[in-house]
């Protein structure tokens, strides 16, 4: 939706969220099209939307939308699912990728995915050396204090507001060129492009955002030996736990957070491993491998309806 939600009051935001469902009630549905949160939408908005849908159809149908508050049929583990999926992927492929036990990490974008990946990686002993949000970036060569960063965001302030505390300094220039082992784009599309791809010093890029690396930048990174774990695999934890939420809503039986994490881990590792094998056997990038892996499944489904060769023979 074309709107700047920061310019709306909370009541206006609720009316707009409900208006969205009034307009699209015929398009969406638990067996037709299932919305979820994205940039600048959250669980409270999903809750309003689920309620509006229930009022329109006259039935309690939580499976129509995912990312709801827990009390309204949301799933445990949905909050950090996008970051957690990427975290499990990196951990699983660490040996194959030859990653260090203690990596230096830069995170571009400090919304839901950015905050959780910083928390998960720093808990494993990795150093978060630089973080950015829409107002700027901070860095600390010896590692940022993730608690300070989370505290600032919680209070509605930019990461830049932590400057001067815990050795945090303003990072001049583009965070993309930070000296680090792992670069995590967790903001919007096209952040790594032809103009700055050559400045990337990280060995590994974990795409928690959708489409953060342009096709032109992909070529530059591949030539420079940087491996990109592509969005359609790296940030799929979000939709996977949304799928778990939909399953739990439909069965009316809810899993523990440990069950959610375990199911997510198993799926990320098995699909991540399959994509890795395609990349190795065909000598292609992880992105091309992920598309090959997906296209195989899509083709199987589409071809099951019959193709030209079937109808002309």
């Amino acid at each position: 939706m074309q709107v700047d939600p920061r310019k709306l009051s909370k009541s206006e935001l609720e009316r707009l969220s409900r208006a969205y469902i009034q307009a699209f009630a015929g398009v969406i549905g638990p067996d037709r099209d299932i919305p979820a949160p994205d940039v600048y939408t959250n669980s409270m908005i999903m809750g309003w939307m689920a309620d509006e849908y229930a009022q329109i159809v006259g039935q309690h149908i939580p499976a129509v939308i995912t990312g709801k508050p827990i009390a309204l049929g949301g799933s445990l583990g949905r909050g950090d699912a996008t970051a957690r999926g990427g975290y499990y992927l990196v951990r699983h492929l660490a040996a194959d990728l030859g990653l260090a036990d203690r990596m230096r990490v830069a995170v571009q974008g400090f919304g839901n995915a950015g905050q959780h990946i910083a928390r998960l990686l720093s808990a494993d002993g990795h150093k978060i050396v630089a973080v950015s949000d829409s107002e700027g970036a901070v860095f600390a060569p010896d590692g940022l204090h993730v608690d300070l960063l989370l505290e600032a965001k919680q209070a509605g302030r930019s990461v830049v507001s932590t400057t001067g505390r815990g050795g945090h300094e303003i990072l001049p220039g583009d965070i993309v060129g930070t000296d680090c082992d792992l670069l995590v784009p967790a903001a919007l599309e096209n952040m790594i492009h032809e103009g700055n791809a050559a400045s990337v010093r990280a060995r590994l890029v974990l795409e928690l955002a959708n489409g953060p690396v342009t096709p032109e930048a992909d070529d530059v990174l591949a030539k420079g030996g940087t491996i990109v774990l592509p969005d359609i695999l790296a940030n799929a934890g979000g939709v996977t736990v949304s799928y778990f939420e939909w399953v739990q809503n439909r069965q009316g039986f809810y899993w523990t957070v440990d069950e959610i994490h375990e199911r997510l881990r198993a799926m990320v590792e098995s699909e991540g491993r399959a994509v890795w094998e395609v990349a190795q056997s065909r000598n292609v990038t992880m992105r091309t491998a992920a598309y090959v892996h997906a296209l195989g499944r899509l083709a199987e489904a589409i071809e099951a309806h019959g193709t030209q060769s079937f109808f002309t023979s």
Binding site: M1, Q2, L16, F24, D33, P35
Partner: peptide, 23 residues
Amino acid sequence: FLAWRCRYDDTRGPTKGGIRFHP
């Protein structure tokens, strides 16, 4: 406010997608 909802391909199951509020 302008809004869109896209169902890209539903061959493998119901379509899914995030709702983005952005200028």
